[in-house]
Design a protein around this nucleic acid. Structure first.
Lengths: 255, 255
DNA sequence: GCAAAAGTGTTCTCTGTACACCCATGC
DNA sequence: GCATGGGTGTACAGAGAACACTTTTGC
């Protein structure tokens, strides 16, 4: 999964900005906060900058004749190999200095013989449209392009250092998820095919950022009439075996 | 308030796109849905295209080194002469063909010797960041620039024909207002200094799009403890005089 | 006095929340 | 049997909705 890019490759791509300016709308990007659920934790998919301990929300650019929503779908597919995924625009980020690389990053890359100041592509001010998407962790095959070194899932509560305003971006995405809380939508898109009530509860506890009462959560969720109860799951634990559940079939909502 | 622009003026401005491209980020605009409340109706401030029965949400462009939120404030001030106004980004509109002028408009303007197809400025595809703002109707002095003929308030339920995707834009702004309903914020920014309970109720009925029970609304609003009761207002009607209210002082929230 | 509209109080339901109890499972 | 964790039931408080009643005003 980790793909190393050589310095020459990176410089080749970056300096060759001509293709970029021909194909895409300049100064404009889409960033995609990808949420997944695994090991009882809410995760985001991040990509690591080569040679540096900085990570980034992945994104892409908008083709000159492309709807932004279509661009977001295309970019998400490039990043996860997934189609037909829940995807939603949540905010546009446009501080004038938001996409400036820090002095520290520039210095370290200069040591690698990459001079950011000389690359027109990177000199642009970018305004970025933020989308978030909910994906089934198990189905994602993360991919990286040559700008990045590797991709990995990170616990939403233990984010690594991020470039630009990406920490704020993830925070806003989570906040939007919380405020537009939809039990069917979020669970259906983030959970695997089958799961226990406890796992589902963990998901909502992470999104809401607070513990929920076990029995009240169960009653509320079951009353929504969106779950189907399956057989019991014997875990080997010294306690009653929990039921497995799945969501009643609905079509995955896209934009 | 109505300022007529001659064809020569319009063409002068439009053809002189050089200034625009030097000063602003191309292909990028901010549109500002301005809400006001008057005559017991929720209104939006719109501007009329010269010579045509088409209206537009007003907006502007982003300077090369300007934060988008700052740009929105500047644009709003240009349009209403008001400072320190509640203003919120709600969605970015980016369909590829969203800012194309219709064939009908082009034809009519061709008859006025304005050839849209020859104006580079107008040939651009625009991606527009939508903001909405809540203003005190009485304090606004609408202004127009040379692109438009006049400005006027329109009832939210009786919108005239609008260019581009502006009808959808206003709808989304209203929908956002509804979903993030905040009794203090909305009322405080949209109502005049003093008002009756009935007037306030009308505002929320329009936003929610449904009638509310008079007594339940009164009880709920008063329990929020955000209103101050003033003297009675004798309207001359053959009924009990209603109290006037004002909001307890809070600072007007900006972005 | 009467109609119109404003102010106030009461009841009922529904939801959310806390607490309590019982049941299945493996050691 | 016993500890652990899952499933279910109950009781109380607060919010919202519907209804009823009283008060003020101009004619």
């Amino acid at each position: 999964m980790v793909k190393e890019a050589t310095n020459t490759e990176i410089q080749g791509i970056l300096f060759n900005s001509k293709d970029y300016f021909e194909q895409f709308i300049p100064q404009f990007s889409i960033d995609c906060v990808i949420f997944g659920f695994h090991d009882n934790e809410l995760k985001v998919l991040l990509s690591k900058l080569p040679k540096l301990d900085y990570w980034s929300v992945q994104g892409g650019f908008i083709q000159k004749e492309e709807d932004i929503d279509i661009a977001a779908v295309r970019i998400l597919k490039d990043l996860t190999s997934l189609d037909n995924i829940y995807l939603k625009q949540f905010q546009t980020f446009g501080k004038a200095k938001r996409s400036e690389y820090s002095y520290a990053i520039k210095q370290v890359l200069k040591e690698q013989n990459i001079d950011f100041d000389a690359i027109p592509f990177l000199q642009q001010r970018f305004i970025s449209i933020g989308y978030y998407s909910l994906v089934d962790f198990q189905k994602v095959t993360p991919s990286v392009n040559l700008y990045f070194e590797s991709s990995a899932w990170h616990d939403i509560n233990k984010l690594p250092p991020l470039i630009f305003d990406h920490t704020e971006m993830i925070g806003t995405a989570l906040e939007t998820l919380r405020q537009t809380l939809d039990y069917q939508l979020i669970g259906f898109n983030l959970m695997p095919e089958t799961f226990t009530m406890k796992e589902l509860q963990r998901l909502y506890e992470t999104i809401l950022g607070e513990p929920l009462k076990r029995n009240n959560f169960q009653e509320k969720i079951l009353n929504l009439n969106i779950l189907e109860r399956l057989e019991k799951q014997f875990t080997g634990g010294a306690h009653k075996a929990p039921y497995l559940y799945c969501f009643k079939t609905v079509s995955k909502k896209s934009i």
